[in-house]
Design a protein around this nucleic acid. Sequence first.
DNA 1: CTTCAACGTGGTAACGATTCCAGACCGCCA
DNA 2: TGGCGGTCTGGAATCGTTACCACGTTGAAG
Lengths: 356, 356
Amino acid sequence: MTHAKRRTTAGSDVPARITLADVAAYAGVSRSTASRALTGRGYAAPEVKSRVDAAAEELGYVPDANARSLKARRTPTVGLLVSDLRNPFYAEVAAGAGGVLRAQGYTILLVDDAGSELEEMDAARTFLAMRVAGVLLTPVSAAATQFIVRQGVPVVEIDRQYCRGECDAVLVDNVTAARDLTRHLIKLGHRRITLIADELGWTTGAGRAKGYLQALAEADRPAGDDAVVSCGFDPERIEKEVTELLSKRRRPTAVFAANNLVAEIVWRQATRLGLRIPDDLSFVAFDDSPWMSMVQPGITTVGQPSVEVGARAARQLVNRMGKPGRPRTIRLDCPLIERGSTARLGRRRASSRTSS
Amino acid sequence: MTHAKRRTTAGSDVPARITLADVAAYAGVSRSTASRALTGRGYAAPEVKSRVDAAAEELGYVPDANARSLKARRTPTVGLLVSDLRNPFYAEVAAGAGGVLRAQGYTILLVDDAGSELEEMDAARTFLAMRVAGVLLTPVSAAATQFIVRQGVPVVEIDRQYCRGECDAVLVDNVTAARDLTRHLIKLGHRRITLIADELGWTTGAGRAKGYLQALAEADRPAGDDAVVSCGFDPERIEKEVTELLSKRRRPTAVFAANNLVAEIVWRQATRLGLRIPDDLSFVAFDDSPWMSMVQPGITTVGQPSVEVGARAARQLVNRMGKPGRPRTIRLDCPLIERGSTARLGRRRASSRTSS
DNA sequence: CTTCAACGTGGTAACGATTCCAGACCGCCA
DNA sequence: TGGCGGTCTGGAATCGTTACCACGTTGAAG
């Protein structure tokens, strides 16, 4: 048995790979037959099939996905675009979506756009160029989503929503959760509560601010000057704003961090400034993180079902790729997790000091 | 100006996308010319070029990456395979690699194999099918790497090494770091130190165990029965083993957690069992995590330069894709970060209790 | 013995982009 | 005027795979 002659792409710097033609020649059949034998679509005599399979195995044949996709005009790939993989929230969303999609036989093209609209648009272009079957994204603007939807590719927005009515979305109920968290503080007697948000232009930030303001309004508490601070995503800037806020003579009695990044900085700065939680400052955060249940006292928070968000989005996308239809918005609840970082106002300075 | 007629793929369920032929027709030139105008390779009169560009823009043309890759027999894509995106270490490696690769114009095909050899092999096949230009992976076995290398695709192993001599690798110096950490405990007078590792078959676990044993040996401490516990990656199993270890009458005076997952469980269990750190138990961990600097006391640890590991691996891969050569192994140092979780043996039960 | 269906097989034309090649057209110089 | 080099363009082949179609071959039914 002689080996099929390998084309040597002289002059080219790309090493020749085994192709279907090689396998076919090796097995002594035509390309069509080899294709039918390997894919199982169409007739192929059992004896031939096993011979072709053996040839493929022996030669280490790996079908070219590019050629296949080109022919089929579709790919078993979906694009997944998140803002920051290092943030556990996005990592879990990705993991949740990945599990579902892998089980369905899809490959994931994952891009981290670092929260930049430019990169987001770039990723959208890449996805379209790859002819992905669908896209999941945590949008930073409406542009990318619209661009993709217009090309007829289904999109599911995750966590934030910019294109209501144009595509599906899987979100958490930011308004309700933020209202619950704020009510909790109000019930404990707090009046000066500051919300430190990232970006009020994002639908998450806006929703959380809305819930927060609703809770204040229904309790007849006016939202003062220092009610809401918006400080972006740059850690240094956040740190500066937080330090400033906590160093004020009339600082708030409670702080509401709108995401886990802000929360970590608030916590570190409060600790650094010697503020005791909850004695000197009550503290709540949106989005539970591992450390929030490890520090002493634990942080009162609403937990986002991040893995579930990713999984639901993936399932929704799979359905949508099957059959188009009216866009749906799915909203998941965030359970309130009460820990030790919140205390009744007035019990301040009551407990013993353990450190300066 | 009439729109170019769109092919309606009657019967097919794949919506027709704008193709180069459409753009060419719209601009009134041939496909060849349109291609030259858009890619900038070869002659194209300025007037023609701008007309073609305008046509592409107007029609929303997105070149088909599959067709392009098929023709070019190469893709501007690299495969990135990690074991668990939810683990901050891998997330940071991915982020580090992503930054470098994106800057170099590569697209990343990211797969999370959940630490399974089967999934790893599956991912390898996918990468080869996609004709990726190179692969970065945190290997779980030698099989996938060898399979890919044999097809002539460059691979860089990250964090663990199974194919020394066959491909590049970027690792951290596990042996030295683990030895440092163990020496630190020994210097504080500890004798019964247990290492809780994940998988001793993995090169990371093996290296850390080796460094740990070296430190014991050089101090003439015999490694007792309960010296090393290997407990896999299943959180429940780890929890069970840890609880058992910490509940023993003659439990170790110090515990060395070999990774951040184990560390978190050790910490939670120690706290649950009412063990005070460092009074009742000294505790060190491999791989710094955010919470380790937030809990009180902070955890003494060696920090892995995870982002840098990813970035270095990416750079090495880019070089290797440029020109083959002898495989290189790059080893990065892990700095020892001393915090409060380690104390001199004998000072036990000296401090006041703050909680039962 | 013909006819017909079912089974197997190979040829060929796509899929969309790129690239070589031949050739058209221009101006310029001898 | 003929030739020549430079600029620019379209035709055609190609990448690897699949799908359609047409053509054997076989066995059984009429």
